[in-house]
């Protein structure tokens, strides 16, 4: 088995006097979908943001491909590899196309190739008909798909999804599960924080619950074998 991309150990984060997180170990591995469930306010978002390098933990040991490094150094690696998606993704005040192109435009890629890639990605997410709409005018489900596409296009090794299916109708949920499953099968590491356990259990390889700042292993009912095509989703 390949070593994990990132291994976080002894992660603590406090807000004032309250210890929000005190996690012994958390691994992020390629091609693995890890589901983190927990009550509202249990610290799921904070954990995801730490793992995405957006929040600095009070203490943590980070191993990047089995090499231990300081937070500052690890953070740069994390930023290059992990993309975090908000529960309610922020749409830049511009067209869908430019939202998706944002990550690519940060790097010095020629314009033509950027828009070729963007067009491909929009087709993949079935958003091509919305390319020139202002992203702010989209529905919740469409925004989530734009965010997913915008993340995928920068080709991250890890996607951290914060409650990706809340405020979505059944149809959008199913297409989101499908997209996530596809990405995982492409070899991406997927982290999902959600209390929508039933929806994600079929595609999650690994399920932990965040309780009292600690991660507890949850036995998944069906340990699926890798590569199974998902055809059914529970209600």
């Amino acid at each position: 088995m390949k070593p994990p991309l990132f291994l976080f150990r002894h992660v603590t984060k406090r807000f004032g006097d309250r210890v929000l997180l005190n996690i012994d170990q958390f691994a992020v591995s390629e091609g693995v979908c890890a589901l983190i469930s927990g009550e509202n306010g249990a610290g799921k978002t904070t954990l995801l943001k730490i793992v995405s390098g957006l929040i600095k933990p009070d203490s943590a040991k980070v191993h990047v491909k089995e090499v231990e490094m300081s937070w500052a150094k690890a953070r740069a690696r994390i930023q290059r590899n992990v993309v975090y998606l908000h529960q309610d993704p922020y749409m830049l005040d511009t067209s869908v196309e430019r939202n998706v192109a944002y990550g690519l435009r940060l790097h010095k890629e020629p314009r033509a190739s950027i828009y070729e890639k963007v067009a491909d990605a929009l087709r993949w997410a079935r958003l091509d008909h919305l390319a020139h709409r202002n992203a702010r005018s989209l529905s919740g489900g469409e925004k989530q798909r734009v965010a997913l596409t915008r993340a995928r296009i920068v080709n991250p090794s890890v996607l951290a999804l914060d409650e990706p299916t809340t405020n979505m109708d059944q149809q959008s949920r199913i297409s989101t599960y499908q997209l996530i499953d596809e990405l995982r099968n492409e070899g991406m590491a997927i982290l999902v924080a959600s209390h929508d356990q039933t929806g994600f259990t079929p595609i999650a390889d690994h399920h932990t619950q965040l309780v009292g700042g600690k991660l507890i292993e949850v036995e998944t009912a069906v340990r699926r074998s890798r590569g199974t095509k998902i055809t059914r989703f529970p209600g």
Binding site: G53, L54, Q79, R80, H86, Y90, L92, H107, R150
Partner: peptide, 9 residues
Amino acid sequence: VWETAHTLG
């Protein structure tokens, strides 16, 4: 905004 920009690189 900042988080989105940062996480996209």
